[in-house]
Amino acid sequence: MIRGVRGATTVSKNQEDEIVSSTEDLLKKMIELNNITPESVASVFISTTDDITAVFPAKAVRKFKDWTYVPVMCMREIPVPSSLKMCIRVMMHVNTNINQNKLNHVYLKEAKMLRPELSNN
Rank of each mutant, 00 (worst) to 15 (best):
residue 45 F to W: 13
residue 92 M to Q: 10
residue 32 E to C: 05
residue 1 M to L: 07
residue 47 S to D: 08
residue 118 L to E: 15
residue 81 P to D: 10
residue 17 D to M: 12
residue 109 K to W: 06
residue 117 E to V: 00
residue 29 K to I: 00
residue 109 K to S: 10
residue 21 S to F: 14
residue 22 S to C: 14
residue 23 T to S: 13
residue 121 N to A: 06
residue 72 V to I: 14
residue 29 K to L: 06
residue 112 K to S: 12
residue 44 V to W: 08
residue 47 S to I: 00
residue 44 V to L: 13
residue 62 R to M: 08
residue 95 N to F: 06
residue 30 M to F: 06
residue 119 S to A: 12
residue 87 C to Y: 02
residue 5 V to F: 04
residue 94 V to T: 03
residue 22 S to I: 10
residue 57 P to I: 07
residue 39 E to C: 02
residue 76 R to E: 08
residue 27 L to D: 11
residue 98 I to L: 03
residue 48 T to G: 13
residue 97 N to E: 11
residue 47 S to K: 07
residue 53 T to L: 02
residue 73 M to E: 15
residue 64 F to G: 11
residue 29 K to P: 00
residue 40 S to D: 14
residue 97 N to W: 01
residue 24 E to H: 14
residue 39 E to F: 01
residue 111 A to I: 06
residue 86 M to L: 02
residue 54 A to K: 04
residue 108 L to T: 12
residue 83 S to I: 03
residue 96 T to E: 04
residue 13 K to R: 14
residue 71 P to M: 04
residue 77 E to W: 03
residue 24 E to W: 10
residue 20 V to M: 09
residue 78 I to E: 05
residue 28 K to R: 13
residue 75 M to W: 09
residue 11 V to E: 10
residue 90 V to R: 14
residue 74 C to S: 12
residue 25 D to R: 12
residue 117 E to T: 01
residue 121 N to E: 13
residue 76 R to K: 06
residue 77 E to M: 05
residue 53 T to F: 03
residue 27 L to T: 12
residue 86 M to V: 00
residue 101 N to H: 09
residue 117 E to I: 00
residue 21 S to Q: 15
residue 69 Y to L: 05
residue 75 M to R: 11
residue 94 V to R: 03
residue 47 S to H: 07
residue 115 R to S: 04
residue 59 K to Q: 14
residue 43 S to N: 08
